[in-house]
Design a protein around this nucleic acid. Sequence first.
DNA 1: CAGCGATAATGAATTCTTTCACTAAGTTGG
DNA 2: CCAACTTAGTGAAAGAATTCATTATCGCTG
Lengths: 209, 209
Amino acid sequence: MKAFKIPEATVMRLSIYSRYLHQLMDEGEDTVSSGEIANGVGVSSAQVRKDLAYFGEFGTRGVGYKVSELYLQLMKILGLDHRWNTIIVGAGKLGSALALYQGFSDRGFNICAILDINPAIIGNQLGNLEVQSLDQLSSLVGQHQIQIGVIAVPANHAQDVTEQLLQAGVKAILNFSPRVLKVTPDIVLRNVDLSVNLEILSFNLALNR
Amino acid sequence: MKAFKIPEATVMRLSIYSRYLHQLMDEGEDTVSSGEIANGVGVSSAQVRKDLAYFGEFGTRGVGYKVSELYLQLMKILGLDHRWNTIIVGAGKLGSALALYQGFSDRGFNICAILDINPAIIGNQLGNLEVQSLDQLSSLVGQHQIQIGVIAVPANHAQDVTEQLLQAGVKAILNFSPRVLKVTPDIVLRNVDLSVNLEILSFNLALNR
DNA sequence: CAGCGATAATGAATTCTTTCACTAAGTTGG
DNA sequence: CCAACTTAGTGAAAGAATTCATTATCGCTG
């Protein structure tokens, strides 16, 4: 696997291809062409082949790709051939929702714990997780060998929580707070802003008025 | 406002700038330079100026931008100078979370209703919304003049729900299901996949192993 | 087993986005 | 009111990503 520069858009699409391939497996398909994948996920076939080309040759000319084989390759490329241990910090609306969302577990992310600083909600049950105190952060990260931290706290606490997570040994952060986080370059950081998506809709709606 | 081709990345950043400006207003800042904005949100100052340049001239050379003025301009560009009526279809984990999430309302999106097809959860209370039957879709959309539909149903029902929404007169769709939706070109469609973000983290973590 | 049709792989061309470097225009201090 | 300084605006250059067009393989058919 070349570790060169892979466009983030490519990685995002690989994730989407993998889900589509899973669907094809369920439907009992054996092989698939780049054109069919393209159609299924809404990109061009050249795009599909180019994305795959970063990582090797997976298909057979004249035939296409073997669905199950390509699926496994993509899962491996995405690092989803094993499970990741994850902790959520912040058990407000958003944090709770993330903890309950089945989709993460389905794709290989174990939510090991969810924490909050507010005594009023510590102890609340969320699915089969109990909200624990922020004080437990460091020991939980160690105990469960947690690699990924999800930040769902208000903006003014985001940097502080980040530092605690990194101190405890977390290697990647998914930040749902609207605050730019400072981390060292060896830490994998990704920011998600849920309202941005609605606002892009709004922008496009507003154009045609 | 030029209706030419605005890069989606630009629109996304405008949304982020606007949030940062709001924060500056709270802190009582009066003016701000492109460099400060850049710093605050993690891009280059040239990027900030270029993004703004698509829409006009908002600053004063030698000085910077008036925070409150630029904020209002951005909100207007983003179509957030008035509120959008929104309906959520699907009251599972994800749909419920979205209904409860304060962030949408804060940014101008009224969640008018949340629907599901499962009788077991119809009638459940989510904040100040009650889960209603999918049968009500058309009448609710008409009654509340709903412009935006949020799809949080399983993949196999996504296209069907989409068609019902469009039939009822919805003009934009935010799709959280992992399914490519077919819509006419006049409909504004945006797809969000929550697990993709974790998977991009996973990919980057897997690179360094 | 030769030829045809299909499709992956890939280098080149194109388009899109970001960065750079410069210019224009304002402010402040003496 | 001039000089020094700051910062927005912008065309050009550089860099990335996508699309196009060609080539290389493969399987199937007669």
